[in-house]
Amino acid sequence: MISIEEFETIYNLIPGEPEFELWFDEDGPSYIIIKYADCATFQRCGNGPRGSGEFEYPSLNALLSTDLLDGLNLRRDWSRIQGIIASDSWHLNNPNDLQHLKQHYHRNYRSRAISATMRVKAMHPHTSTTEDWPIV
């Protein structure tokens, strides 16, 4: 499983409104973190009474540090997470998917010495359009 710090980097790296589905065990509920331009949301997945609806937090850091529904606190409970899927495409606990995501969104993922003014041409995996987005 990736570290919480690596998750935060990936969260900040992916443009748009990516969704991150996570779960703690095979039989329990799954949860979704959604990134928005001005906030982050957390919810329990499911229809009807199993789903929770979105709870809004001012930032990812606030969401990770807060006591959430079902008694979860992601900073405290991070090591219990069994899997994370980013935007229905990448399993963040699978080294091949994680590497592909890093290469896809940032050729110099590990290098933070790149000027913030540079732009990267990124191809979104689900469309044939391209968009510019800043290096974070």
Rank of each mutant, 00 (worst) to 15 (best):
N12K: 12
Y109R: 14
H106W: 11
W78Y: 08
D25K: 08
A122T: 01
E131W: 06
C39D: 00
H104M: 03
A116G: 09
E131H: 15
I10N: 00
N96Q: 09
I34R: 12
D88C: 04
Y109F: 15
E6C: 08
E19R: 08
P134R: 15
Y31C: 00
Y31M: 12
L92Q: 07
I114L: 15
H104L: 12
H91R: 05
L68E: 11
Q103K: 14
R76F: 12
W90Q: 06
L64S: 10
R44F: 06
I33Q: 01
D132C: 03
E17T: 13
L64F: 11
T127K: 01
H126D: 03
A116Y: 06
R107F: 07
E21N: 00
H106I: 10
L69C: 10
P134K: 10
H106G: 10
D67N: 14
A113H: 14
L60F: 07
I32A: 03
I32V: 13
H91D: 13
T41H: 02
L98D: 04
K121V: 01
K35L: 05
W90C: 09
I85T: 00
T66M: 10
W23V: 10
C39Y: 02
D132G: 00
D97F: 05
G53T: 09
G83C: 12
L68N: 08
I81P: 05
D77W: 02
K121I: 01
E8A: 12
D70N: 14
P125M: 05
I81S: 12
P58M: 01
E21A: 07
P18H: 00
T117R: 13
L72D: 13
S3R: 14
G48D: 09
G71L: 06
L13E: 08
D27S: 15
M1N: 11
F55Q: 09
F7S: 01
G46V: 08
W133S: 00
E21C: 04
F42Q: 01
A37N: 11
G51Q: 02
W23Y: 08
Y57K: 06
A37H: 07
S89N: 11
H106F: 09
S59I: 04
L98E: 07
L98W: 04
E21P: 01
V136C: 12
F7G: 01
P95K: 11
A122V: 11
L92P: 02
T9A: 03
G53E: 07
L69I: 15
L72T: 11
H104F: 08
I34S: 13
